[in-house]
């Protein structure tokens, strides 16, 4: 029986990187508690991913493959997860704070009569109590949380916890479970994923963001920069750019958009309002390009360039191309 259980999310036929982050963290917690680390995979054929999880320290992989679990849906997945947790009684359950995690974790917790500390950026143990540090007010402050019910459920922010390879057996346990389809749920009609195949802002390692200073909907320069970095980069925007209709709502970074924690955040033509800074202030490295030397973004930027972005970004892209080709 695993003391720590992680939920490994599968998306578009692949395990999400955030699942390996959970496994690495889960491994450390399981070692401290002196127990096993389990991972649960949901969906037909999901057991194929067991070897990948084993690499990151998972002792036991539970796969629940009922045919009704082919497509994600909150009620059925929550039933499956609840079943496994009731059965194996882990002390700690870790999930990712992804779109799916936000949908699934609280529903599962409500079924189990427990709570979720969501969007944690670090964990520690106090005895057998899991303490999760989580940003609040989109990062304007932090607090340490714990769950006083069983199991202790937490979701972790993607891209923050370190991965570490620790080979373990990853032995597969198939779990048979029949979904109660009498409970009403939704059905997916159309999954119109972006064809560009770009990572989501919340999962990107590098974000190139443009604000009102872009002057219009033409973001070619920034798309180009993200393109140079490749699939780990994506383009974001300030609310001013979104409200002007230049960018999609889902591109907005900030307190009322997405809170992001990339390794590198490049802000172009963004002044650095309190709401914007809240959402990206915990990026590891911030670069700002702005023509106003007094722009507040410079007080947070590790590297600032004062000047016209339309002159600087093309040069920046050239330099990037050269250095990344080395």
């Amino acid at each position: 029986m695993s003391k720590v259980l992680i939920y490994a999310e599968i998306k578009a036929g692949k395990i999400k990187k955030s699942a390996f982050e959970l496994a690495s963290e889960g491994r450390k917690l399981a070692d401290s508690l002196g127990g096993d680390l389990g991972a649960v995979l949901i969906g037909p054929g999901s057991e194929q991913f067991a070897p990948e999880l084993a690499k990151f320290g998972v002792d036991t992989v539970y796969s629940i493959e009922s045919p009704e679990l082919e497509n994600y849906n909150s009620e059925y997945f929550a039933q499956a997860l609840t079943h496994l947790i009731d059965d194996t009684k882990p002390e700690i359950v870790l999930m990712s704070h992804t779109m799916q995690g936000k949908d699934l974790a609280p529903r599962t917790a409500a079924k189990l009569g427990s709570g979720v500390m969501s969007d944690c950026v670090s964990f520690r143990l106090e005895g057998s109590t899991l303490i999760g540090k989580r940003p609040m007010f989109a990062g304007k402050c932090f607090a340490e949380w714990s769950v006083s019910a069983s199991p202790q459920i937490a979701t972790a922010r993607p891209n923050v916890l370190e991965t570490a390879e620790v080979p373990k057996s990853g032995a597969i346990t198939k779990v048979s479970f029949s979904v109660d389809t009498s409970r009403s749920t939704y059905s997916t009609k159309d999954l119109s994923l972006d064809t560009s195949g770009k990572v989501d802002l919340t999962e990107a390692e590098i974000i190139v963001s443009g604000g009102r200073g872009m002057g219009g909907p033409d973001y070619t320069l920034l798309e180009e920069m993200a393109g140079i970095f490749g699939s780990r980069a994506t383009v974001g925007a300030s609310r001013a750019a979104v409200d002007a209709g230049w960018r999609k709502h889902s591109d907005q970074v900030g307190q009322t958009g997405k809170t992001v924690t990339p390794n590198l955040y490049i802000a172009c033509g963004i002044s650095g309002s309190i709401q914007h800074l809240a959402g990206m202030g915990s990026s590891k490295v911030i670069v700002a390009i702005n023509k106003d030397p007094e722009a507040p973004i410079f007080t947070k930027a590790d590297y600032g360039i004062v000047g016209d972005l339309f002159k600087i970004v093309p040069e920046f892209n050239k330099e990037l191309k050269a250095i990344l080709a080395e």
Binding site: K11, T98, M99, Q100, S184, T185, Y186, S187, T188, K189, D190, L191, S192, L193, D194, S196, G197, K198, V199, D200, T202, E203, S250
Partner: peptide
Amino acid sequence: DIEGGKEIVEC
């Protein structure tokens, strides 16, 4: 909203 796109669901 889902990562990288949208989906349409009915319930």
